[in-house]
Amino acid sequence: MNTLVDENNEKREQLNVENKKVYEDMLVYVRLSFDKSEAETEEVLMELLDHLLILQEEGRDSRELFGSDPKQYAREIVGELPQALPKKVRALFMMGICYFLGFYLFTSGLIQTILAYGFHHLEQTKTYSLGTTIVGLIMGVAALAILAYSVFRYIQWSCFRHTSKIKEYILSGLMFAVFPGVIVLAMYLWLPSFGPTVVLPVYWMGIVGVVFLIMAKLLGRKI
């Protein structure tokens, strides 16, 4: 499959500026429909690219291929692509969750350990309510999933609009960083303690975080 993606990258360079812009918007829009069969997606993208290159050679306009509303055309293509959740997408999703939990647990474990052992600001052990911890983590993961999905949709929505792409990516990046932080903070403040409690040293969180990070790395290697 990667050969088709590589071939696409190479061939795309032959497009002129105007055609490249339309085609790359099309490409981003179609590829971001991540619940579609990857093979079919790349094949139809290649067919469209080949067709567009022929039109370009003949001095004809991309509108003869995509019509006057390329976004509508991209939507039509996506609508006909067979549904499939590729293994890659599932692995990426799992990897995202592991990285999120890993970074979150590791950094909070590290900070608390430094505060407790280095500066004696905190107790060296902490009481965890299992119910709260589990609900909190699930909510965090759910928030992340919703966010990732909305970023995908947002970029799709922004395709074929002629505003600065870079500005939009920075904006989505900010959303990506700030939003989960707010959720986690809100949970700390408002989630009541419930479920059985365990008392553990504060570096425990850091260790679990490292385990998640290792899992994320391993998943990443498989992709």
């Binding site: 079919e40 067709h51 003869e64 006909e80």
Partner: peptide, 15 residues
């Protein structure tokens, strides 16, 4: 027909 209109149809016929 618009040349591009064959591709969604080809996808559907394959499905």
């Amino acid at each position: 027909v618009k040349e591009g209109s064959i591709y969604p149809l080809l996808l559907r016929l394959q499905k």
